[in-house]
Design a protein around this nucleic acid. Structure first.
Length: 552
DNA sequence: AAGCTATGACTCC
DNA sequence: TGGAGTCCCTAGCT
C-alpha cells in the first residue's frame, strides 16, 4: 500500500520502498506523493536524513528493505525545513502559524510589534467625541476625584514567602481577608479552600470538604468577615465559617447529583450586593441566581443574562452603585445590568469581544472604568461607563492565552491606586531571563498600555494565572500551579536566607521523594536557578531544597 | 526520559 | 445544532 498521508499531516517517520511496484490508486494520491518527495528532496539539503533499515518486505525472491527516514519536521505544522519549540530558554515559533501573541499572520512572536520589551503594544480604539449628558456629568462631578498626576506606584517585586505545593491541585482563586491583613484565602481545582497567615507562614489550614471540585470565586460576607461565600463547579454556593470550617450550602443547583453533562450545573462568577443583602452568582447555562444573605436561601427565579447554554464566568457589582452589575462570559460579551429591573435581554450595555471574556471588572474606586480580559490576548479598557461604550477606549495586546490546563487569566485592578490605572496580570509566553524560561507577572498602566513592571523569580517556572493585589498593603499574592507566593517591594521584603525554612515551605509528594535521597542532591547544590538553560519543570518546587542544600 | 492525561474552546461538516 | 476532531510555550506523575 502506498502511503496515503495527507500533506497536512506529514509523518515523522516515512516508510520508503526501493521498488515502486505499487501505483497510487488516484491522481490525487499520486500528486500528494510527488509533493512529499519534492519536499523531502528540498529539505534533504538542509536537514540530515537518517536512514534506518528495519526489515524486508516483498516476495520471497527479492526482499526489498524498508527504510525509515527520520526526518525532522515542525511539531506544530508538521512541515519540514524549520522547527518550533524551545531552543534553550527561548521559544521559537512556527513561522507558518499566526503570531502567538497578537494572533495576526505574517510574523512570529519573536518579532511581533506587540512583544513585551519596554512597553506593550496599544491599539487605540477610535475615540468618538460624544456630547452625551451623562459624560458631561461625569466630567463635572467625578473626574476631579481622579488625580491627573498618577501617584508613584510601588511594585511588590520580590518573593517574601511561599508555600510550595500547598494545594493538591492547581489554584483557581485567591482572596485577601477584608480586615485581617495577613490572611489569604485560596481555592483550588479539587474544591479545597486554604486559609493562610502569610506572616506566620506555618499557620495554615486547608478545608477539604466544602466543595467537590473547582472553587471559582470566593467573597467575604461584608457584614461578618468571618464568613466567606464560595461558588464552585459542583453547583453549590457554600457559606463557610473560617474559624471552625463549618459550612452550609445556601444553594445547590445539582440536588439530584450527576445526571450527565447536559444537566450538571456549575457556578462561576459571584459577587455580593451588600445594600440588598444578596449574593449574586451565575452558572454555566447563562443564568443568574440570587441568594438572600439573611435567610441564606434562594431569592426569586434564575434570570437568563447571557446566551442560553453559555458559561457566565464573571460578576461584579459596581463599587459605588451596587445595583449596577457587570457580567461576562463565553458568549464573547461583557454586559452591564441594572439589578432593579433585571430580566432576560434587559442589559443596559453589551460590550463585544472577539473571544471568551475571562473577567470584567469595574474600577475599584470610582467604578467608572471597565477592564476586561479576553481570550483573544487583549485587555480592553472602557474609560467611562457614562461615555461611548460602543468600542473600548483601548485595547492592549498581552499574552494570556487560553489553555485548558490552566486557570483562566484575569487582569485585576490595584485597589489602592487612586488613579485607577494600574492592573496586574500573569503572562503566558515565557521570556528568556538570563537563560531561564520564566513567565513573569505584569503590571500594566492601562491608561497608556505601558508595561510598568514585570516581576518574576527564578524559582517560579510555572505560569501564574491567578494574582491578587492586597486591598491596603503593597502586597501581591500569586497562585501558580499548586503553590502560593507573597510578593513585597524589594526594599521591604526580608531577604530569604539560605536554609531559611521559615519563609518557604515545601509540601507535596515530590518533596518526600526528594527528601529520601537528599544526599544524592549534593551535586546539584551549586544550582542558583539561573545557571542553566530552560530548567526542567520539576525544578520549580525545589526552592527550599535548592537553598537548603547549599552548605558551607 | 518519554509518554500519558487532566481537560475546554472552537471549527468544520 | 451537535458531534468529532483539533489544538503552539501545561504540570505533574509514571
Amino acid at each position: 500500500m502506498a502511503p496515503t498521508t495527507r500533506r497536512t499531516s506529514f509523518p515523522k517517520v516515512l516508510i520508503e520502498k526501493d521498488s515502486d511496484s505499487e501505483q497510487s490508486s488516484s491522481d490525487e494520491e499520486q500528486e500528494e506523493e510527488e509533493m512529499l518527495v519534492e519536499e523531502e528532496n528540498r529539505v534533504a539539503e538542509n536537514v540530515k536524513i537518517k536512514k534506518l533499515e528495519v526489515g524486508f518486505v516483498g516476495n520471497s525472491k527479492g526482499k526489498t528493505p524498508i527504510t525509515l527516514s527520520l526526518q525532522k519536521v515542525c511539531k506544530v505544522c508538521k512541515k519540514p525545513g524549520h522547527e518550533a519549540g524551545f531552543k534553550g530558554a527561548t521559544y521559537i515559533d512556527c513561522p507558518m502559524k499566526p503570531c502567538f501573541l497578537c494572533k495576526t499572520p505574517g510574523h512570529t512572536t519573536l518579532n511581533c510589534p506587540h512583544r513585551v520589551s519596554t512597553e506593550h503594544g496599544v491599539v487605540p480604539a477610535p475615540r468618538r467625541k460624544t456630547t452625551k449628558p451623562l459624560e458631561y456629568v461625569f466630567e463635572r462631578q467625578l473626574r476631579h476625584a481622579i488625580p491627573l498626576i498618577k501617584p508613584k506606584c510601588v511594585i511588590p517585586d520580590q518573593v517574601h514567602c511561599a508555600v510550595i505545593r500547598y494545594h493538591s491541585r492547581r489554584v483557581t482563586s485567591l482572596e485577601f481577608h477584608p480586615t485581617k491583613n495577613n490572611i489569604l484565602l485560596s481555592g483550588d481545582k479539587k474544591g479545597q479552600i486554604g486559609v493562610w497567615d502569610f506572616e506566620k507562614v506555618y499557620e495554615k489550614v486547608v478545608y477539604g470538604t466544602i466543595h467537590s471540585c473547582l472553587v471559582n470565586t470566593m467573597k467575604f460576607n461584608p457584614r461578618n468577615d468571618c464568613m466567606v461565600y464560595s461558588a464552585s463547579s459542583d453547583g453549590t454556593i457554600s457559606c463557610t465559617d473560617l474559624e471552625t470550617g463549618i459550612s452550609s450550602s445556601p444553594m445547590n443547583l445539582n440536588p439530584d447529583g450527576w445526571q450527565g453533562p447536559n444537566t450538571w450545573k456549575m457556578l462561576y462568577g459571584m459577587d455580593v450586593n451588600c445594600e440588598k443583602g444578596l449574593v449574586l452568582v451565575a452558572d454555566n447555562f447563562g443564568f443568574l441566581h440570587l441568594v438572600d444573605m439573611r435567610s441564606n436561601h434562594r431569592n426569586g427565579d434564575a434570570v437568563l443574562i447571557h446566551k442560553k447554554g453559555s458559561k457566565v464566568v464573571g460578576i461584579h457589582c459596581n463599587p459605588l452603585q451596587p445595583d449596577i452589575l457587570l457580567t461576562c462570559g463565553n458568549d464573547h460579551y461583557a454586559r452591564i445590568w441594572d439589578l432593579r429591573r433585571l430580566e432576560a435581554g434587559s442589559s443596559l450595555c453589551n460590550l463585544e469581544h472577539k473571544r471568551v471574556v475571562n473577567s470584567a471588572y469595574f474600577s475599584p474606586i470610582s467604578g467608572n472604568k471597565i477592564l476586561t480580559t479576553s481570550q483573544d490576548n487583549r485587555l480592553r479598557i472602557w474609560d467611562s461607563i457614562f461615555g461611548n461604550m460602543e468600542s473600548p477606549s483601548r485595547e492592549i495586546v498581552h499574552s494570556h492565552d487560553f489553555n485548558r490546563h490552566l486557570t483562566p487569566f484575569k487582569a485585576e485592578w490595584d485597589p489602592k491606586d487612586s488613579s485607577e490605572s494600574l492592573a496586574v496580570v500573569g503572562r503566558y509566553i515565557s521570556e528568556n531571563f538570563n537563560g531561564a524560561a520564566l513567565h513573569p507577572i505584569d503590571f500594566i498602566d492601562i491608561s497608556t498600555g505601558q508595561l510598568v513592571a514585570e516581576v518574576m523569580d527564578p524559582n517560579i517556572t510555572t505560569i501564574s494565572p491567578v494574582n491578587k493585589l492586597h486591598p491596603r498593603d503593597d502586597i501581591l499574592a500569586t497562585g501558580s500551579s499548586r503553590s502560593l507566593f507573597i510578593w513585597k517591594p524589594r526594599e521591604r521584603a526580608e531577604p530569604i536566607e539560605e536554609k531559611d525554612e521559615r519563609k518557604i515551605i515545601v509540601y507535596g509528594k515530590a518533596e518526600k521523594k526528594r527528601g529520601k535521597k537528599k544526599g544524592d542532591d549534593s551535586d546539584e547544590s551549586d544550582d542558583d536557578g539561573f545557571s542553566k538553560l530552560k530548567k526542567p519543570k520539576s525544578k520549580q518546587t525545589e526552592w527550599k531544597l535548592a537553598r537548603c542544600s547549599k552548605k558551607g
